[in-house]
Design a binder for these strands. Structure first.
Length: 111
DNA sequence: CCGCTGACTCTTC
DNA sequence: GGAAGAGCCAGCG
């Protein structure tokens, strides 16, 4: 979670980013969600691209499970070399890929 | 206020 | 199933 100071009133950091991060932390290991799901669960229906934008700006060393977010097709949207890292992390958590795709019916997290 | 930009999605061919 | 086009939404210059 980012650190806030009462002085700065970040439009992005506070609302969107904090909500996204909260949802992100709630995703169990070995499960995945789509960008659309992430945005919706954060309170921004149909703002899938927004979710992607937030993830893109996360620091490389973040502890957040950013790798559990994939696109609606079950594919990784992150360009290389990130894609390889993401896939490896998911596989480490037990998520299997079939023909480059994640079996959404089995791993998609739906609270 | 305007216009452009995306780790996106959905619908149609 | 893959390509193409049209929505979508908030942030940013």
């Amino acid at each position: 979670m980012p650190t806030f100071t009462p002085s700065n009133t970040p439009s992005v950091e506070n609302s969107v980013l904090s909500r996204i991060c909260r949802v992100l932390n709630a995703i169990p290991s070995g499960r995945v969600v789509t960008y659309g799901d992430l945005a919706e669960m954060a309170g921004y229906p149909r703002a899938a691209r927004l979710a992607g934008g937030v993830l893109r700006k996360l620091p490389k060393d973040t502890r957040l499970p950013w790798h559990r977010v994939i696109n609606a097709q079950g594919r990784i949207s992150l360009p290389e070399p990130g894609a390889s890292r993401q896939r490896r992390r998911l596989e480490d958590e037990g998520v299997t890929f079939l023909k480059g795709r994640v079996d959404m019916t089995r791993y998609r997290w739906l609270p």
